[in-house]
Design a protein around this nucleic acid. Structure first.
Lengths: 207, 207
DNA sequence: ACTATTACGATATGGATGTACCATCAAGGT
DNA sequence: ACCTTGATGGTACATCCATATCGTAATAGT
């Protein structure tokens, strides 16, 4: 057999280039040529590892979902059993915000694919809903665990509310409507509004 | 002089076609030919009224912003002086949700342009921030007018929270994550969480 | 050493796209 | 009746894109 190459590595190299191209120019800028140039390889190679354009676009989407999911799960696992529900929720939500460059890149790419799915292009649609639904479920569990304020609690509705709020906040950050600092503050305020502003649920302020 | 044509009408005819093309296929589907076909006119006419592609894309964006802004203002003006802050806020927020086809079309187009602005294409960026900022300001005013719950009120932060939540909810509706009914319910729940669940602030349920 | 097979480069091709340009038609004032 | 001017159709053209095809280098097992 001839020289063997780790296909995983090559594919990742290509999908990473696709991400960068999308961030800098949107889906329209994604062509065999632009991706090849960005990855520093020939057009032929992209054809070789993914046959068609649609193929490497879907692969890119998948890789972003996997990366984001993995980071989320890692954060989730890092939470000790002694974490209060509020601490858990806060940690997870902050993990979802585009607070640094890698996350910002992922958020942009997911946003682009999401709009592509909405505007009936052949891209995914149903899979994209799985993640937020899972998040709602997790949040609702944590809210129940918190036995938050009075009787009127509706964990599922609150979980949905938190989910859409964080989604909108992430979008707002991408658009420059919110800074990293104001976003973090807003998440904290959101939790105040949902969980009640019981200070015994909170750690003392860091500064 | 030869037959005169209302340029306003023609331009609207074209930008409306652009909207439909975007909804059905995203920015990538927007070409002189697709828009001409959708509008039932010749490619040349689009060139005649807008010279370049970028030009009619920007015009389309502008028209959508104007339409949405006009409807918002109309709803705002329709509020009697006897409306409670909660009624006012609720009316305005519901006006912003893509609850029917025209608003859904607008929301999709704005979403597409927004992502385009984020992914450094030549499209707008700063203008897009004006609308949400104005909304925050209006919401903060109404919240202040409501003199809502206890002392800990922070109208500006709450206004931002409501804004991003509604933005995220609109996105969620487009993606099929929320139905019209669940969205309306969620807005109501959001106001409960922000304004407190004082029932005397609310009208009796409609059904 | 030979060869089969993997990895990759180069280039062709057919179609679509943005834009420029030329020609024509329709009507309103003379 | 005619001509000027605005409104449009048709089309040419250079570019770019996705994909297909042919060819070649490199190496692992024999």
């Amino acid at each position: 057999m001839p020289r063997l190459v780790d296909h995983q590595v090559r594919r990742r190299q290509i999908t990473s280039a696709v991400r960068r191209v999308i961030v800098e120019g949107g889906l329209e800028a994604v062509t065999f040529q632009s991706v090849a140039a960005e990855a520093g390889i020939s057009v032929r190679l992209i054809q070789y590892y993914f046959g068609t354009k649609r193929e490497f676009l879907l692969a890119t989407h998948r890789s972003v979902m996997e990366d984001a999911g993995a980071r989320f799960m890692k954060r989730w696992a890092a939470l000790g059993d002694d974490a209060t529900p509020r601490e858990a929720i806060s940690a997870l939500l902050n993990e979802l915000l585009p607070l640094d460059d890698p996350r910002r890149e992922e958020a942009i790419v997911l946003g682009v694919f999401n709009m592509a799915a909405i505007t009936g292009q052949g891209i995914t649609s149903e899979e994209t809903l799985a993640a937020p639904r899972a998040l709602v479920s997790i949040l609702a569990d944590q809210l129940r665990r918190a036995q938050y304020p009075e009787a009127s609690a509706d964990p599922d509705l609150d979980a949905e509310l938190v989910t859409v709020a964080v989604g909108g906040l992430a979008q707002g950050m991408l658009a420059g409507f919110a800074t990293a600092q104001s976003a973090v503050d807003l998440v904290d305020h959101l939790l105040d509004r949902v969980l009640g502003t019981n200070d015994d649920h909170r750690k003392p302020p860091l500064r």
